[in-house]
Nucleic acid binder design. Structure first.
Lengths: 210, 210, 210, 210
DNA sequence: AATGAATGAGGCTTCATTCAT
DNA sequence: TATGAATGAAGCCTCATTCAT
């Protein structure tokens, strides 16, 4: 066919590529497999992406975008630190279970030593969430709704660390198994984790209900 | 006969291989680069390691061994949860700064979707620390030195998550930069992180001095 | 798309491969040489054949097929043992002179100690000709047109032995030279061999014209 | 040790090398295996043989020598054509069963398209036996003890062909199986083959007892 | 003179990329 | 413009050969 690729097909390419990349790693993933899975030819992928690396980066960017879209929902104006925390925890669980490949892509970025254009982008996003969380803590501290001896940035860092590990624990095979080792595999486990994590954070942050 | 490789040369191979593997990932790393960096021929590497995979495993085993040796020091008998926590935090900082490639090796296997014999080994180690930390919490709970509403396994999980992220934050380029975004880059930053994390953990765990 | 290899090119590959394999043996033959000789790239050979072994098998199958096609012509129904013998002798001479590489392929598998799937196939063919020749002798014996004290299978074996050596004598360098030592190199040699061999066989088999 | 290799060790090398070469083929045979099997070092083999090829040639020459030594015994002065034939047939059976590796080496020579120094040697031997057998036939023809319409050289060729195939049939795996297909595998098979072959030859040569 | 570990050229194979259709 | 077969560079691995001891 000589028909231009539809938006749907382009999405399909990125989705299948994300699956292939996150399942086999960027090296073992092959363009031919991605093309086959997407129902397009190898050649056309090269019309849209300069090379395999560029396709990988496009997948990363897309996954990151989907993730941040989700996060933005959770951090609406006016919510208390506790509310935000719970929302973020639940989103982490949900998104990572629903879209494990996308989280694995995010995990993949963190391997990238060279820091290509995507890491650039990832860092911007990281800066945004750092700002966001830090502000939450600053505001809460100013309001007196958390303990006064915390450094907002550092606590934001701890909080984000816990969230990242939660993401990985629900999407990357290795972390998934580690989660089972620590927390078991029963039905209610995930809810218990939410509750325990909230306990931990509330106490750790020194949150006091107004 | 031609002189056998000295122990030093063998160490050199593992060290350079660890660097190559952790910098480029197991796929992009090439035996020829490792050989060149180690000052030996390609062939001799195959005298000592069956194939690239075996060399990678040897590097991993070595890195994880070095790491666990360090951790064991921190978790001597009789230490309180608080003491253990502080020791582990300081070791994480120290080891990751000193041997970043080794931590990156660990990070690398967490990417491995298939979970070969390598992750097998890693999982054993994970099981050990899970047991160790969980016991600490169980004991502390029994003693009444932490809050009573915690689940030891789940809190051990949170604790280990924070430690892992600390390791990565001092060794992987991406996490290193993220750390700067959250916590700045001043001289005292690392000490502040220790102090703040201890604050966070003590409160979060509900540690009460006897 | 880039034009698919023509049938001609595919034949070319098998023909050149057969030459390379039969000249150097399956081990010393290299895919690169075959590709170069066939005017194609190395990679494309792997599109059509899984590996060097598969290519070798394809060459063998083709060579043995060509050979058996020839043999089948010679052993039509109703021909007397003498007629069959003469036809097979002439075909041996003709085919081996015309397609020496194909006979050398056959020779090559007889060296294969391990007897992989290739010899498997060869054995089937061997079984066919064993059956065929043995039947000829059985029938002739029953008709009384050969001596009565022969064992059909054993005489079929001798006959096939003579034919095989004839094939080799016209295609393998070593046997070719040996042939010259025994029988000279004059113009009429090959015809003399036919006639002498027929004399030998007729008397040896005790063939009596009805 | 710094002791020169004993004659025994040198023999050992050739014997083991012959086994390795004939079992795996000249390519897959490795010098290291041969050294190990012979109980000597790799290096010392290179003191005695310039390279692997030279060792292979030495094995060939030796095997050929052992074979011809055997044949010479069978063709003593004064024996009749029939006596010589039976002796050669029985020797072929015996030697090939006893020393299959050596016959396989002989078989290997016939693959050698390039015609190195061994083929040279082999051809000389071939010339000797050609001469020998041809003379037998010439003498018998002159004596009137065989039919008069034979060409001695050509019949000598047929005879040698049958002997060679007999050798191979008792030593090379492929030919061994082919033998079973044609002649079965019972206890008396080998003796039957001798008797049938003698029948065939006597009739084919037109031997008349004086 | 023998040893046997180290060397490194060379072959197989894969797959990112190209390009004729 | 899309196709997908062909290309060929590059990596893994083996093993003949070398050479320091």
């Amino acid at each position: 066919m000589l028909k231009k690729l539809t938006q749907e097909q382009l999405d399909q390419i990125l989705e299948r590529a994300t699956e292939e990349f996150s399942a086999k790693g960027p090296e073992r993933a092959t363009i031919m497999n991605i093309a086959r899975a997407s129902g397009v030819s190898v050649g056309v992928i090269y019309k849209y992406y300069a090379d395999k690396e560029a396709l990988f980066q496009a997948c990363l960017t897309r996954s990151l975008g989907m993730l941040t879209d989700c996060l933005e929902e959770a951090t609406k104006e006016g919510a208390s630190l506790e509310e935000v925390a719970e929302a973020l925890i639940r989103i982490a669980q949900f998104f990572a279970k629903e879209h494990p490949a996308h989280i694995r892509m995010y995990h993949a970025i963190t391997m990238d030593a060279e820091g290509g254009s995507v890491s650039e982008y990832a860092r911007k996003i990281e800066a945004v969430s750092a700002q966001l969380y830090t502000n939450c803590f600053s505001k809460a501290k100013a309001e007196g709704s958390v303990r006064q001896d915390i450094e907002p940035g550092v606590f934001a860092f701890f909080f984000d660390n816990l969230l990242m590990m939660l993401h990985f624990s629900y999407s990357c095979e290795y972390y998934r198994e580690r989660l089972s080792i620590f927390c078991g595999e029963d039905e209610e486990r995930d809810e218990r984790i939410v509750q325990q994590l909230l306990l931990f954070l509330k106490a750790g942050f020194g949150i006091t209900k107004a």
